[in-house]
Design a protein around this nucleic acid. Sequence first.
DNA 1: CGACTCAAATTGGTCTGACCTATTACCAAT
DNA 2: ATTGGTAATAGGTCAGACCAATTTGAGTCG
Lengths: 244, 244
Amino acid sequence: MTEPVLSPDPVSDDLAALPPLGRSRQIMDALARYIQARNLQPGDRLPPERELTAALKVGRSSIREVVSQLSALGIVEARIGSGTYLLRQISAETIYMPLSLSADGLAEALLMTLEVRRGIEIEASIAAARRRTPEDMARMQEALEEMERTHHREGGSGKADFAFHMTVYDAAHNPLFRQLLEQMRDIFERFWDRPFDRPDFAARSFPYHRTLFNAICAGDTAAAAEETRKILDVVEEDIRNMRP
Amino acid sequence: MTEPVLSPDPVSDDLAALPPLGRSRQIMDALARYIQARNLQPGDRLPPERELTAALKVGRSSIREVVSQLSALGIVEARIGSGTYLLRQISAETIYMPLSLSADGLAEALLMTLEVRRGIEIEASIAAARRRTPEDMARMQEALEEMERTHHREGGSGKADFAFHMTVYDAAHNPLFRQLLEQMRDIFERFWDRPFDRPDFAARSFPYHRTLFNAICAGDTAAAAEETRKILDVVEEDIRNMRP
DNA sequence: CGACTCAAATTGGTCTGACCTATTACCAAT
DNA sequence: ATTGGTAATAGGTCAGACCAATTTGAGTCG
C-alpha cells in the first residue's frame, strides 16, 4: 500500500538544523509525536524504517538508533521481516527510568526482586485504600468474583489473579503503580513458570484477596498493607520451594 | 596509544557464526565480558568503537547499536569527541528492568515516583531492621554523626544525608535496594534541585534520621517503617511546595 | 619556564548505498 | 479450496565516507 506520509510534521523541520544536544532524544520525541499523531496503540505496527527516514528527514542509521533504544527500553519490539511493533504507550513527555540488577542465581534474583516488589505492592494497596472510588470498588469486586469462580481450574486462575491485582493498582490512582508492577510481573514470569496456575498456590493465596478487597473498601490502610504482605509471603514461600 | 587488543577473546569467535536469535543481546553480553575481563570500573573509558569493531569482529553499526542501547539503559554515556564511559557496573548476567512513566507535569511525575520510592525505602528499612549486623550499625552511626555535624552547613548536608541512607540500604543486605534507590535518587535529582542542601529541609527531616537509626538497631521493623515514612513525607511536602 | 595558540589526531554521530535473511503477500497450478 | 513457489517487503549487518566536538601536542610567544 505504501501509504504516503502526508503530514508535513513541523517536528522534522526543526530536526534538520539541530546538531547540538541530545539529538537522538529529539528524534525519539519526534517519533513519539509521530506515533501519537497517528494514534498508534500497543500491538500496532509502526511504519517501516525507510518510510520513517523520509518522514522525519533523518538517515536510516538515526532511525535505527532510536528504534534500537526504544527496543532496549521495552517500548517497541522489532520482528525481522515483519515490522516493528508498539508494545506500550509512548509520548514525547515520557520519562524513562531504566534499572539494572545483577544477582548470583535466578532464585536469588527473584527473591531480591520480590522484596522490592513487595514494598511497591504494599504502598499501592495503601494508596488504593485511601483513594478508591465506588467505581474502583465495583471493578475490584467483579474481578475478585471472577477469580473465585476460576481459582480451582487449571490454567485460568493466573489471568484472573492478574486482573484483580490490576484493578487494585488502578484504584491507587497513580498510574506508575500499574506500569511498574505490570512490567515487574512481566519480568518475573519471564524467569519463572507462573505458579498462579498451580492450584495449590492459588488455594493458599486467594483467601487473602477477599480480605484485601474488604480492607481497601473500608479505607483501612493498615489492614490493606497487612493483607498484601501475606499474599506476597505466599509467593516468596513458593520461590523458596522452587530450586530447579 | 592505540593499545592493541591482544586477547583472542573466545567470545568473538562464537559471534562470527551466529545469526539466529537476539544477536544484539549476544553482542551486548560479549561486550559485557570484554568489560569484565579488563576490569573496567564506573568512570572508566571503554575502547573506541572502531577498536571494538575489530575486537568483537562485528561491523561498527552493530557495536553502535548495543552501545546505543546501553546508553539508553543508563549503563554507559557517550561523549562526542572524547569517548564512551562506563556509568555503572555491568556483567553478562545483568538483568535490565527498564521502566517508563508519563505524567502531566514534572511535580506530578515526581510525586508519583516518590510514592513508589517510599514503598521501596520502607521495605528497605524493614529489611535493615531485620538483618543489620554490628558492622552495619557502626557504619550507620558514623554516617549519622557526620550528618549531624554538617546538617547546618550550606552545601554539605546533601551528601551526608545520601551517605547515611546508603548505609541503611546496605544494612538491608539486599543489593537491589541500594542499586534501585541510588538510581532513583539520581533520576530524582536530575529533575529537582536537591532540597537536601537547603537548610530548612535538612532541619525538618534530620531528626527522624536518628530515630530511624535507633529503630533499625533495636530491630523494631514497625518503627523503622514509620520513621522512614516520616522522612519521605517531608520530601513530599517539599515537592508540593515547589511549583516553579 | 610557563602559558597560550593552533593544527592534527582521535572519537562519537550521521548519511548513503549495498547486500543478507526472515516474513509476508500474491498468484498460479493442482 | 489448497498448495507451492516467487516476488515484494522489512529488519539486520556491513563498508566507506564525511561531519563535529574534543583532546593532544608541538610550536610559539611572553
